[in-house]
Amino acid sequence: MEFLLEPFAYDFFMRGLLAAAMVGTLCGAVGVYVVLRGMSYVGHGLSHAAIGGAIIGITFNLDFYAGALIMGLLAALAINQITKNSHIKLDAAIGIVTTAIFALGVAIVSKLRNFKQNFEAALFGNILGITDQDLMMIAGVTVITLITMFFCYRTLLFSTFDHEAARIFGVKTNTVEFLFSLLLTLSVIVSLNVVGVTMVAATLIAPAITARMLTDSFSRMIMLAILFGSVTGIVGMYLSYIFNVASGTTIVLFSTLVFSLTLMAHLLRRQ
């Protein structure tokens, strides 16, 4: 019993737990729109662009978050412009834009060997790597995103369900698209240190698709996704300490377990 309660005595663990709960809440809420807009691959791509951007930024003496934000936003805007103005589809545009930025980051890492340790932590998430600055960034982005999603609930829902009709009914769909791209990019960037580049996509998608199986109502889906996201974040972070593995992997594995159990229950109920 003492072993199970031991991690709660450590400051770094409590910081990690708080960060994981907030990232889970954030990704749960944003993930609903990502899944329903058919953008599941976007989270994966943006996380790669952001980490590439962070490395490029550091070489220019910028902060980790500044480089990640600039390149993440540039990637989101470039993807948007390419798909709007050509016959290139979303998945292909994500593939070329974000991988190119990631490749540039990897090239810099290969040249400057002192980057390697941080880079590996950013790939899979690191419970020890959560600083006070990270906590502040995660809290700020979570609050801003939830407030924006609350007050833009109606326009976000309409433009996600039926983009063209929303525009005809007077919704400023271009503004909504830009706002959503911004929120998604910010969410991916602040999640990097907790879940890692390779795990962000699953952190966004798993709570949303689990919630979708349990409800046919949009508002309930958002609430359930937030609940699943925060619970899997907390439990995943705890398991990361217990089994001494990267936090991103335990969070994703635990959300996948919850998803699998829900899927089985869903299939059994339908029979």
């Binding site: 329903l36 609350f150 007050f151 833009c152 609930y153 109606r154 326009t155 829902l157 309409f158 369900f161 039926d162 009709a165 929303a166 009914f169 007077g170 919704v171 979708r212 409800t215 046919d216 109502s217 949009f218 508002s219 889906m221």
Partner: peptide
């Protein structure tokens, strides 16, 4: 898409300047 009939009809009111969900 996870929407009920009521939620679809609600969308018609989304440009009336009200921001509460």
């Amino acid at each position: 898409f996870p929407v009920t009939v009521e939620e679809v009809i609600m969308m018609g009111l989304y440009t009336n300047g009200r921001y509460w969900p």
